[in-house]
Amino acid sequence: MIEVKDLHKSFGEAHILKGISTVFEKGKTSLVIGQSGSGKTVFLKCLLGLFHPEKGTISYDGKIYANLSDDEKRDLRAEMGMVFQGSALFDSMTIAENVMFPLRMFTKQSKSEMQDRVDFVLNRVNLFEAHNKMPSEASGGMQKRVAIARAIVNNPKYLFCDEPNSGLDPKTAIVIDNLIQEITDEYNITTIINSHDMNSVMEIGEKIVFLKDGHKAWEGSNQTIFKTDNEAVTDFVYSSELFKKVRQMYLEERQ
């Protein structure tokens, strides 16, 4: 579980996060949504410890991040998996080496044990045939799946995804969403996804946090988002005609 209390972050004069508080529960897929510039990425980077907030606390299963020593912070980070927007695969390594990397760094497993684990996770993301390819030879969807495989190979407690289906076609995006959802359930981890994608919101948003201008403007789930009257949320989520109709149909069904 990750608990965020009154989080503030500024860059010079620009006050990006203005007192965000929320809780991300274990075993649930939580989505952070909002317009570009609303502070989603800064929020995620604060959670990852890449940015240091000026005010507020972030605690991971009761441990307040700011109170940890440098070594404890590094140990905690070893329990995090991250899927970057651009996948961030190491381009000097093959796909298998990328996935094996966290195991080589943090475990004392033998090479065959590591190889077995890599085979298992690559199989899990349906990429078994891509072992020896370089990241540059893989498609966008494959790179995202490799990034997911690398993020889960060391059994993380927390999985963070920054716009995991940006730049993907709708079909591949659904595959990636479902994969993240299944992995969250299977491993019972705390998953937080930054997303713009309304399909993801509807499909896997067990918890949704809507950010606007650095504030938490709304919080709910993919069930309650249909019913909300919050103008900021409805403006953002139902900006397309398609989603307006989906919402209308949902509400009509309920009446």
Partner: peptide, 10 residues
């Protein structure tokens, strides 16, 4: 973001 990936891994 490869350096961010290293840092996130601790």
């Amino acid at each position: 973001e490869q350096i961010d990936a290293l840092e996130v891994m601790g």
